[in-house]
Amino acid sequence: MNMTQQTPDAETIKAEIIGKYPAKVAKKRAKSMVVNDPESIPQVQANVRTVPGIITQRGCCYAGCKGVVLGPTRDIVNITHGPIGCGFYSWLTRRNQTNPGEVGPNGENFMMYCFSTDMQDENIVFVGGSRAHHYQDLFRELGMKSVAAGYEFAHRDGYEGRRVLPTIQADADSRNIEELHVEADPTAYNPRKSTDEMQTFATQGYEFNDYNGMMTEMEKGSLVIDDISHYEMEKLIETYHPAVFCAGIKEKYCVQKMGVPLKQLHSYDYGGPYAGFRGAINFYRDIDRMVNAKVWKLVRPPWKDSPQIVAEYATA
């Protein structure tokens, strides 16, 4: 990967992409797509509602709850109360590995089960990319540059860092999240490190509760896009011809059809783990395999590049 390779001008690309949208949509999307400057972080519109019809990567609240949060619990029976689909689609489709031990009282494992109330019409009353930051480090370690990045769903501090954002909304959001007050349970809360220990670590230079955000880590002139649409994604790939693209299952085969390998950052394409030092090695190996796979060179049939031979056959 050539780090000094000239990348196209991000402002031009942005203007070209936005230009295709209907006026109202263009106005909204323009705020969610910004050209980065790590010295003076621009404001990015994040965590606002998706414009209908853009073909979003986003899913629903239920998917986050049942799939992401409750997914890794093995000794809880999760019952989906609703029509069958919601339960069905969240049934084992996210990766959760557990070793519950032997069958027995402590060996509960309900992960393989889908429980649903399977609501029918008589029950209906009629009334009327969170990981984009971490992976940029790993790519940097491979000598690869991130030219554009964004979250499927994030708050502004995810992009701009945990610092004073004078223009942020009170709930960092547009009406999606309840205001919660959390306090430690005096009997049940058992921190792994005491306050004194934490202070000692701090004096040794360790940083806690700090997050610099994605944009401080990204190069000047790179593109930052929240809730990217399918169309925007295609345009980016056409423009940058990246060595690899990272997203999810819905994007995978479309991007690969364009001749660009896609690494799924939710399921790791059923590989991994990528956390820690050993995980980083797994990641390097996977990216090397994907980027350098021979199949990408087989996409174009050889006769496409030898028109004279075809012509000779035709006249023979």
């Binding site: 209908p52 899913g59 629903c60 489709t93 085969y253 479309c254």
Partner: peptide
């Protein structure tokens, strides 16, 4: 949009192909 995301994901996993669809979000 979650319905659309689930259906596209399920069809994609089955076919290993792009599945394009819009949603009213």
């Amino acid at each position: 949009q979650g319905c659309c995301a689930y259906h596209r994901s399920a069809l994609t996993r089955h076919y290993k192909e792009p599945v394009m669809a819009g949603t009213s979000s």
